[in-house]
Write a protein that binds this DNA or RNA. Structure first.
Lengths: 189, 189
DNA sequence: ACGTCCCAACCGAACGATCGGTACATTATT
DNA sequence: AATAATGTACCGATCGTTCGGTTGGGACGT
């Protein structure tokens, strides 16, 4: 049977190349020709793996991202105190956003022409990430309702900082947030 | 001379239609045919007004946005206390973002294929907005350096909230921020 | 061991549609 | 009459997508 061995690089490698291209050019900016070149596969081969075309590729990438976040989280949960967990988690964010220079796949796709079709996938991924943050903050002794609000606001802040970094070329704000949010989130009422 | 009276609607009306289309479909998602239909002008007429094509249209829209912000600000500066100024300013943001349902033109363009060419315009507009917020916060008795940091973080938070609204369809976070930030920004150290 | 059948993986070439952009004629304004 | 503003018709290029065909390895019957 085997779920797609797919050549030397494997399906994961194909998805990684697609994700990089999408995050670099955006949904409407990345053409099938671009994705073909990025993956090293002919366009018809891409349609073999993803009969649904570009939307299915995005959905598959989103699932891969969510899986990677879950794996990161599993490695984080064995850390002792909530503050260190948050430091590790925001370190993972820093890596994912490549220091604030690379957009989030979900929010990028949310502003595309396929946003409506992709909304369930995007919303699910974002909700999972926020729930992860909120759980750690709650564990740190913050009221669950407040923890959720803080998590949402922190998430928005990070996303906005990346956006501003794209617009201005300055990643100072992003770095300041990634450094400061772990303790800011846990600050007592 | 006259800077383009341009038919019954005038240049401002053309720019408004273009801006709406761009904020609805994104830079790469809005084709010249879309913009032609939105403005009611033939493609060649659009090129008559904007020989530089889509990038020039974006730049012109950005200038119009900045001008509208300046006008709003002029109406705000006659208000007495800083808190009320912030309330008025964030009310203007709320209107511009249409309750969190519509993206910011600048940050949207920042993730497009024309981002590099447009960076100076986008960065200038964003810097002006942040400076506006920071000035009012400073006026409210906050240390200028801290005021600037708070302004940057609030701006990022709002932008991120809009992004999340696009992704999830939920504008609660945006509304909470617009309501709460005016007093949050002025909170004493 | 050998032939053969199957099917996932892949590619080149082409499809109609649409892309951004232009040439040129026409209408409106001054 | 001159100039700005607009429409019609079109350009080559590229878009997303599909078609027909090749390859190669694993399963199966003998």
């Amino acid at each position: 049977m085997a779920l797609h061995p797919t050549g030397p690089r494997g399906r994961d490698g194909i998805l990684a190349a697609i994700e990089t291209e999408l995050r670099g050019r955006g949904y409407d900016g990345a053409s099938m020709a671009d994705l073909s070149e990025a993956t090293g596969l002919g366009k018809s081969s891409l349609y073999h793996h993803f009969p649904g075309g570009k939307p299915q590729m995005v959905a598959a990438c989103a699932e891969a991202v969510q899986a990677r976040l879950a794996a990161r989280l599993a490695a984080v949960t064995c850390v002792s105190c909530p503050h260190e967990k948050l430091v590790a988690l925001f370190g993972a964010f820093n890596a994912y956003f490549e220091g604030g220079t690379r957009m989030c796949l979900m929010t990028l796709m949310a502003t595309s022409s396929a946003a409506e079709a992709l909304r369930p996938v995007l919303a699910s991924n974002i909700a999972a990430t926020i729930a992860t943050i909120a759980a750690i903050v709650t564990e740190g002794g913050i009221d669950p309702t407040l923890a959720r609000q803080r998590a949402e606001e922190a998430f928005a802040q990070v996303q906005g900082a990346v956006l501003m970094g794209q617009a201005t070329g300055n990643t100072d704000l992003f770095r300041r947030l990634v450094d400061g949010l772990p303790q800011g989130l846990l600050k007592p009422v």
